[in-house]
Design a protein around this nucleic acid. Structure first.
Lengths: 201, 201
DNA sequence: TTCATTTATTGATTCAGGTCAATGGATTCT
DNA sequence: AGAATCCATTGACCTGAATCAATAAATGAA
């Protein structure tokens, strides 16, 4: 189904200014469409992540599970990329789970495929570097938020910046992304609506 | 003083397997030695970080200052690299301060120098990518620590992993790196030495 | 060495979040 | 539809960190 490659093609052309149709064709040969069902587990602790996935549609979550307690590291939505980047890059076992929260379709490139691209397609190293740099910047914002902001501030921010995500995800997962228990987030919400009675629900 | 380039040369050769003496020579032309005195401020909020620095000797700290409250993002010691990577990469103003905690000597490459290297020295893009990926991995460990561990666990870990750093840095800076107040760290220490009387100081 | 400043400790109090437990409302499955 | 599971809320209690304040210890400068 060539259709499934439309979005990923647009995506890579947008972050790769000099990409030619010819090079894209050889890139595309390395890509594999993969569908998942809600509830599927993509990656478990101990497994090495072997792909970088562009998400055609759907919703994915990575989380630690320590002492029976889930801590969400990240959510990944359609039109962006998912990988357990740390495991993928270092070729070491993942420490976290990755689950599918909604029916999802991804376009994978596996590790060897990517190395082939790096070795054979001009400028791909630069794109790889720029992607790594972008991910670093995003991650450093998350770190700053954990260091500087209270859970309540983080909740207000995600409400404002990703309201759609908050709607699509169970509240206890949002809580674990903010670094608090479900009960705590419930009380944070109660506190907020007491302070701002104009936005009740 | 060619001497000052010895360590940085060893450093770059170690992370750049195929580096030739010839390419190193053209790389080295872009490097600039810069000395700092204890207490110097390298970068202030609003300024764009324009260098990546290899640290010959010394100690550097990056921190946010919000409501008169310092939060240490990172310490940088000799034989490693310092940059405000986010500002450097995105060419946007820094949000944090960077101060020199001990007399320090760095070997700088500036933004244009690095772009020259990327454009003219073979395989340098790959090294840039690998460096960005390494920094990502390190940062993701810090994020996991902030999400999963208590301040006390983080303190015990830094004591074990970087005892030298803890000795060289005032305790209130360690506290702000752990994400707590100086008083809280003092109490954490008191708690620990009460529990483990064999390691009093 | 002495004085001034910075840094670390300790106490008292307040508060946000954790934990345990119970309830009621939603979803999902059959 | 009915049953079972999952999820969100609330209450009671506890703990660890923040805050404010005072003091002691360490560092640095004259």
């Amino acid at each position: 189904m060539g259709d499934n490659y439309e979005k990923v093609k647009t995506f890579y052309f947008s972050l790769w200014p000099g990409l030619t149709e010819e090079n894209w064709a050889s890139f595309e040969k390395k890509l594999i469409i993969k569908p998942y069902k809600k509830g599927d587990c993509i990656l478990k602790p101990g497994e090495v992540c072997n792909t970088v996935s562009f998400i055609n549609y759907g919703l994915i979550r990575s989380y630690y599970l320590v002492d029976g307690r889930e801590t969400t590291v990240n959510f990944f939505v359609e039109d962006s990329c998912y990988s357990n980047y740390q495991s993928f890059l270092s070729r070491t076992p993942s420490l976290m789970y990755t689950d599918v929260l909604e029916d999802t379709e991804v376009v994978d490139i596996d590790y060897d495929g990517l190395q082939y691209v790096y070795d054979n397609i001009p400028d791909s190293e630069r794109v790889g570097r720029l992607v790594a740099e972008q991910l670093y910047i995003i991650l450093s914002n998350r770190t700053a938020s954990l260091l500087l902001e209270t859970p309540e501030q983080r909740y207000l921010k995600i409400l404002q910046e990703k309201p759609d995500l908050v709607r699509r995800v169970p509240q206890y997962m949002v809580a674990s992304y903010l670094g608090v228990t479900p009960e705590a987030l419930s009380r944070i919400r109660a506190r907020i609506s007491k302070r701002v009675p104009d936005v009740p629900a």
